[in-house]
Design a protein around this nucleic acid. Structure first.
Lengths: 339, 339
DNA sequence: TTGAAAGCGGTACCAC
DNA sequence: GTGGTACCGCTTTCAA
């Protein structure tokens, strides 16, 4: 009489499918995975019908337990809402999805030990590979090694002992940007960036200037934020002799500089020309539109994922070329310009 | 003699730990999980020592297979590099991490069946919960129901049959923005948005106008992109009678409108005032700084995650209040203003 | 071409 | 407080 003693809505398992189709569990597996044994067409059809009828979905955990693979990658970034990392993470998600991998995204707040924790958290989840976009340090390298999980370092500027790494050609891109400014006739070109000895954009800026026999312009330190660029821009405005052009190490910083210039009533590019770095979408819609060095985000993402899925053990470091996108903030009228 | 017949570097399992500590596997489990049975302090210490010595990390797949939980959530967004969704995803990642959950991020390209596929892909991964930020449709609802996975709909504007949903108060926020424009003395206020019958911002715009006995200004349809806003802005400039203010349904659109106005030589806010929607970081650094309706992203993220972890079955729809952030593009001098 | 069965590594019940 | 052990669902070898 009772109508509620119906079959418990337990998810169908391989065994249920086998029973329904009148075959053994093994055959269900052969059918689902198209191997490693062949299955007679008729049998296959019966199994597939059973799968449909029962709404069977294989249990990933069981599979993982058996084969040791999760088909998941993890990516660790400082801030996934930062336009650049958002772009990078998106590109990687796309590339990973193409290869059948899902992507776990982990943000870390700041200190290296936070990164190490994120790494351990991914390891616990048994991702098949990790992408780490963070400044590497010993504790981080140690944490990575400890996991034994294949890892590719993103956004690096130099090779890292033992772990494959990928990065944009910061040095070359910076040089190209500065050369473009020089081509525009600027001789006093400032720099806004994080500074420090490892700052490749600063190196590129300085070397491009030196190659043209120009003195380095004023330098303003700034974190990689709009606020940082803004403050740096204000400081530049207080220079005894203002620069006539500024190269910023990120688009966010450049956008901040732009705001400082606007507030100071300085026209861009007539008063001061500006070039940014990254090629983030928002750079196209700043006012004026920002000339910038575009990072090959999609290429880097593709290679990173490729390195994770490929069993090749050729580690080392790959540099990815950048592209100068000429817009208005450098002084070019509406596109085209030579170098 | 051979030194390479060392222990294969197989990862230590619970059994290894048990052997090393001289206890049974069960006790290892009790120790690691702090239950369900008590363990003598001395024993616990021995086990912990063994864990450290062996570098034991529990196998998540095995645990999942047994308990049926992955401690992972999945989020589906149209584009994780769109500033708004990037912010949302980040906030959700934070909230999830706080509760011990990892977050799989999935982007979908466009059509509803792409969303359905993403949903199935998450289901295959056996996430414990799903967050879906997409316009819901029957196929999507069906796919969600099919999975049997707890789901919270994000970014919704209305309740959805059977599935808990969360959304910002688009209608109220739009009204507040438009009222602010009216307060500034504008009587001809245009609208840039996706339009369509379900467009709550458009409704808010129209109703706020009506409440003040004002005619609706010109309307320009635009996708939620900077490009869309730009094109819409250009169209608005060609209106026989131009609006003196524009309310855009997203910051990206507003930024596009700003560019169109700049190119047309129209000053903002003197010529035309602009208010956006979202409260994205870049809105603060547009020129002029964009007055915008801020979405309570962090609150929404927190509630969404809360609903996923909480076993309560009180579905329905929650509206989250928005905040008007007054900057310069509306005509306010430097902050403060009444309504 | 198909089936039986041995694990993969934990969990947690049941007995002691 | 501790130990033995039956699962969880799948893959894959081996035998038929």
């Amino acid at each position: 009489m009772a109508t509620d003693d119906a079959t418990p809505p337990r998810r169908a398992t391989r065994a249920d499918v086998a029973r329904y189709a009148g075959v053994s569990p093994a055959v269900v597996s052969y059918t689902v995975n198209a191997g490693p044994r062949a299955v007679a067409p008729a049998t296959r059809a019966r199994v597939q019908e059973a799968i449909r009828a029962l709404g069977y979905r294989p249990n990933a955990a069981a599979r993982t337990l058996k084969v040791g693979l999760t088909k998941m990658f993890g990516i660790i970034v400082p801030d996934s809402s930062n336009p650049f990392f958002a772009l990078l993470a998106h590109a990687i998600e796309d590339a990973a999805a193409t290869k059948g991998y899902a992507l776990i995204v982990v943000n870390f707040d700041g200190p290296p030990e936070a990164v190490a924790n994120s790494i351990r958290s991914l390891a616990l989840r048994q991702v098949d590979g990790m992408l780490v976009a963070a400044e590497v340090s010993m504790p981080i390298l140690g944490a990575i090694a400890e996991t034994g999980i294949r890892t590719v370092l993103l956004n690096q500027t130099v090779a890292v002992q033992g772990i494959p790494a990928i990065g944009p050609d910061l040095y070359g891109g910076a040089q190209e940007a500065v050369r473009h400014l020089i081509w525009h006739g600027h001789t006093r070109i400032g720099y806004v960036g994080e500074l420090g000895p490892g700052d490749q954009r600063q190196r590129g800026w300085r070397d491009a200037l030196a190659a043209a026999n120009l003195e380095p312009g004023p330098v303003a330190a700034a974190r990689y934020t709009r606020e940082g660029g803004y403050a740096a821009g204000q400081r530049l405005m207080r220079e005894p002799i203002r620069p006539t052009a500024v190269f910023a190490s990120s688009d966010m910083q450049a956008v901040g500089v732009l705001r400082a210039l606007h507030e100071a009533g300085v026209g861009v590019p007539e008063g001061i020309a500006v070039i940014g770095y990254d090629g983030s979408p928002e750079s196209e819609y700043s006012w004026p539109a920002l000339t910038t060095v575009q990072q090959p985000v999609v290429d880097m993402a593709r290679e990173a994922v490729e390195r994770l899925v490929a069993p090749v053990e050729s580690s080392s470091f790959t540099l990815h070329g950048t592209t100068l996108i000429v817009r208005q903030s450098c002084g070019c009228p509406m596109g085209s310009a030579d170098d």
